[in-house]
Amino acid sequence: MQETRLDTARIRAARRVIDPVFLDTPLYRCEALEPGLGCRVSIKLETANPVRSFKARGTEVVASLLADNASRAAVCASAGNLGQALAWSGRGRGLDVTVVASRFATRAKLDRIRALGARLELVDGDHEMARERAAAIARYEGIRLVEDSLDIETCEGAATIGLELVDTAPSFDTVLIALGGGALATGVGHVVKTLAPEVEVICIQPLGAPALTHSWRQRRVVITDSTNTIADGVAGRHPVPAVLDDLLLVADDAVLVQETSIIAGMRMLLDHAGLVVEPSAALGIAAILEDRDRFAGRHVVTIVCGSNVDVDAYHQWVSAAPIHRS
C-alpha cells in the first residue's frame, strides 16, 4: 500500500495518551441482527463512553499535545460530537475550549458541550460556516484550530479502533465505516489495510450528503451546495484534499444510502441489539439492507460510532421505520 499521512507507530503510541475509558470498546457478534441482514454481523460499539462517540480518541491526542502549549486553548467547529469530545478532553487538562456550531445542530449535543465547560458560539448557517468562524477565532485569538480529519491527531486517534479490530476480532472480511469528514474512515482504513489487507474497507454516506463519496469516485474534490440528511454528524459539503488522498489509498468502495434505509437501520439496532444510535451510526446496517446479495455469507464488522440523539426526533424516526422481523 502507498503511504498515507498516518503512521502505525504513532497510532500505537496514541493509545498511551488516550484515557482508557475510550479504549478497548465492546466488540461482539450480534446474532440477533443476522436473520434480517443475511450475513454474520459484529458490532464495534463506540458509544459506551462519557461522550457517546468515537471522537474523544482523537481529541485526547490533541489535548495531550496542547497541555504543553503556552496558550493552552483551542477552538473547533463541530456538528456536536467533536465539540463534546474536545470539551471533555480539554476540561481534564485545564484547557480553554471554544466550540462553534450551527444553531440548527442537535440540541442534546449543544447542551452537553455547554455542560462540559466549553464556550459555545452558534452560527446561523451550516457546518461549513461554523468552520469558517472557528478559523477566524483561531486567527484572532492566536489559538489552536482543531480541524477534524485534517489534523492528523484526529485520524490517528480514531485509528486506534482499527488496532482493536485487527488485534481482537475473530476473522472478518468486511468493515463498514461511516464517512463524514473522513477521520474514522482513513484512520481505521489505514490500520486495516496495513495489518489485514485482505479485509474490504467500505465507507458509507447518505445520499443527501455525498461530497466525499463523489470525490472518492471521481478522484478529485467535489463540493456540494447543500446537504439534506438526518445524519448531521456526516453532513459535510467541502472535503479536505489531504483526507481524500488518504481515502483513495485505504477505501475499497464508497457507497451512498437512502434516508429510509438509515432509519430502518436505527430501528433494527434498537429492536435486535438494544442500541439507541444516531443516524450516522446506522449507516453500516443501511448499506447491508440496500445490498443484501453483496454481503451474503460474509462476516461484516460495523462501527457504531455515536449515540447522541435528539430524543423527540429519534422517537419519530424509529416509530415510522418498517419493522424487520427475524
Rank of each mutant, 00 (worst) to 15 (best):
I223K: 12
I223L: 03
T224M: 02
D225V: 00
S226R: 13
S226P: 14
S226V: 05
T227A: 06
N228H: 07
N228V: 07
N228A: 10
T229Y: 04
T229F: 02
I230S: 02
A231G: 04
A231K: 06
D232H: 13
G233H: 04
G233P: 09
G233F: 04
V234D: 07
A235T: 13
A235D: 07
G236T: 12
R237E: 00
H238Y: 06
P239K: 01
A242L: 03
A242W: 02
A242I: 00
L244A: 07
D245T: 12
L247N: 07
L247C: 11
L248M: 09
L249F: 05
V250Y: 15
V250P: 14
A251N: 14
A251K: 11
A251P: 12
D253M: 11
D253V: 05
A254C: 06
V255M: 08
V255Q: 08
L256Y: 09
L256C: 15
L256D: 05
Q258Y: 00
Q258M: 15
E259Y: 04
E259P: 12
T260N: 14
S261W: 12
S261T: 15
S261V: 03
I262S: 06
I262H: 05
I262K: 05
I263C: 01
A264S: 12
A264L: 15
G265L: 10
M266F: 14
M266W: 15
M266S: 08
M266D: 10
R267I: 05
R267V: 04
M268L: 15
M268E: 13
M268G: 01
